[in-house]
Simulated assay, not measured.
Amino acid sequence: MGATSVYGRRDIALIRFVFFVQPLILGAWFPRLAEVQQAIGAGEAAFAIALTGMSIGIVGSLVFASRLVARYGLKCVFLASFCAFLSSMPLASLAPTIGWLFAALVLVGASLGAVELGMNVTADAIERRCGRLIMSSCHGFWSSGVLVGSLIGSSFAWIGASPAQSLFSLAIAVALPCLWATWSLPNVAEPDGDNSATPGRLRLTGSLLAICCFLFGMAMTEGAMADWSAIYLRDVFALGPGPSGFGYVLFALFMAMGRFLGDTMRSRLGAGRTARLCVSVAVGGGILLLIAPHAEIALIGFGLAGLGVSTGFPLAITAAAEQDGANPTSNVALVTQIGIAGFIVGPLLIGFIAEPFGIQLGLAAVLPLLGISLAFSGAVRQRSGL
Rank of each mutant, 00 (worst) to 15 (best):
Phe85Cys: 03
Val115Ser: 06
Ala92Met: 13
Leu101Val: 07
Gln22Gly: 10
Val69Arg: 13
Ala295Leu: 00
Thr97Glu: 10
Arg10Thr: 11
Ser162Pro: 08
Gly346Ser: 14
Met255Leu: 10
Arg266Gly: 04
Asp227Pro: 00
Met220Phe: 05
Leu170Pro: 06
Ile152Gln: 06
Val108Arg: 06
Leu68Ala: 15
Val188Gln: 04
Phe251Lys: 11
Pro177Thr: 12
Leu14Gln: 02
Gly113Glu: 02
Met54Gly: 01
Ser162Tyr: 12
Ser5Gln: 13
Glu296Ile: 00
Ala305Arg: 08
Val279Gln: 03
Asp263Gly: 07
Thr205Val: 07
Ala271Trp: 04
Leu215Phe: 05
Arg266His: 09
Leu334Trp: 11
Gly285Glu: 14
Leu24Val: 13
Met1Arg: 11
Ile159Gln: 14
Ile15Cys: 01
Met54Thr: 03
Arg201Ile: 10
Gly242Ala: 03
Leu179Asn: 06
Val332Arg: 05
Val121Trp: 06
Phe64Ala: 14
Ile159Val: 15
Leu185Asp: 12
Leu112His: 06
Cys138Glu: 02
Ala365Thr: 08
Phe376Tyr: 13
Val36Glu: 00
Glu322Arg: 15
Thr182Trp: 07
Val148Thr: 09
Leu386Met: 14
Phe19Ala: 15
Arg132Gly: 03
Ala189Ser: 05
Val366Arg: 13
Ile338Gln: 01
Ile49Thr: 01
Gly306Gln: 12
Arg9Phe: 09
Leu361Glu: 05
Val148Arg: 04
Ala321Arg: 03
Ala298Asp: 02
Thr182Arg: 10
Ser61Phe: 14
Ser162Trp: 12
Phe78Arg: 04
Met89Trp: 01
Arg234Ala: 14
Ala164Asp: 02
Met220Ile: 05
Phe17Arg: 11
Ala92Gly: 12
Val59Gln: 00
Tyr72Ala: 15
Asp324Lys: 15
Ser88Met: 12
Leu370His: 10
Ala48Ile: 00
Val236Phe: 02
Ala125Thr: 15
Pro243Leu: 15
Ala316Ile: 08
Val283Gln: 12
Ser196Val: 11
Thr97Pro: 09
Thr182His: 04
Ala319Cys: 07
Gly131His: 00
Gly339Trp: 13
Ala189Phe: 06
Pro347Trp: 04
Asp324Met: 02
Ala320Ser: 10
Gly57Cys: 01
Ile350Thr: 09
Phe376Gln: 02
Gly8Gln: 15
Pro328Tyr: 08
Gly109Met: 09
Gln360His: 02
Leu26Asp: 12
Ala103Met: 13
Ile344Tyr: 05
